[in-house]
């Protein structure tokens, strides 16, 4: 999962108006009807960011990080999986 401000494409300390404008833009580009998954991500990111006081409170006092070790592992797996493997290496796997 990307950090919320990256999902929306705003600076980490963007003000409320920018955030709102950008959120609306992103929703117009990804309406829930056409891109439910992407919309859900955008919405979740916006909800995390929209109230600056709440956001700060969470940053300061939140105990557990928003994701678990498993989430990081899953992400890592995706990264590893995303790297394109040279064909010669693939061929080297044909043996026993």
């Amino acid at each position: 999962m990307l950090e919320p401000h990256l999902v929306l494409g705003v600076a980490p300390n963007a003000d409320e108006a920018t955030l709102r404008r950008r959120y609306l833009e992103r929703v117009r580009e990804n309406p829930p009807e056409q891109h439910p998954q992407r919309f859900a991500e955008i919405r979740a990111a916006y909800e995390q960011l929209r109230d600056p006081t709440e956001r700060l409170k969470r940053q300061l006092f939140a105990v557990e990080s928003s994701e678990s070790l498993d989430d990081v592992i899953a992400e890592l797996r995706l990264r590893v999986q995303g790297t394109r493997i040279p064909t010669t290496i693939l061929f080297s796997l044909t043996g026993n």
Binding site: V27, P31, P32, E33, Q34, F39, R43
Partner: peptide
């Protein structure tokens, strides 16, 4: 219309 992909203006978040 929105479901069918017609551009009618609004995007709805329910």
């Amino acid at each position: 219309g929105l479901i069918a992909g017609v551009d009618l203006g609004p995007v709805l978040v329910d």
